[in-house]
Design a protein around this nucleic acid. Structure first.
Length: 135
DNA sequence: GCCAACGTTGGC
DNA sequence: GCCAACGTTGGC
């Protein structure tokens, strides 16, 4: 069982919208590294949901319910998406500031590769995020 | 709104 | 196959 983190601009697709939807197809990824990470996701994996630009914090968790399939929103090219189901909101969002200040979390791709929108999270980092998030 | 980082494209 | 130019992302 692995851990991941996906980013979304609240303007494009917010956590609040996800809460209403309950489940969503994670489409629109157009970056090879991010796509490959999507393809490496397995059913049951935990996915952290991060708000970029506005908020800049990890706000909740989701679970992979359908593994990679062809992204229906892609008009050309070889792109993939997965289906995510809502799990739980963090009791307290974990901000980028906190992440940068944390010895373990500052090693996350979120900090080191700011442009990557789908990335792996280690088990240790996941535990830390959940703890800081009050879960 | 600016700018750094970095992925992608295209000319050679 | 290299590398410069360009576009996009995302933090500040």
């Amino acid at each position: 069982m692995k851990y991941w983190l996906v980013k979304s601009e609240p303007d494009a697709y917010s956590w609040q919208t996800f809460v209403k939807d309950g489940k969503t197809a994670w489409t629109g990824v157009r970056n090879f590294a991010a796509r490959n990470n999507l393809r490496a996701m397995r059913k049951g994996d935990t996915v952290f949901f991060y708000h970029s630009n506005e908020g800049k914090e990890v706000v909740g968790t989701a679970i992979v319910v359908k593994e990679a399939y062809a992204d229906p929103t892609a008009e050309e090219g070889d792109w993939s998406c997965v289906d995510l189901k809502l799990r739980v909101p963090l009791k307290r969002p974990v901000t980028l500031q906190q992440i940068k200040a944390d010895a373990e979390l500052k090693e996350m791709a979120l900090v080191k590769q700011s442009r990557l929108s789908v990335m792996p999270v280690t088990a240790a980092q996941a535990g830390r995020l959940l703890k800081l998030g009050g879960l």
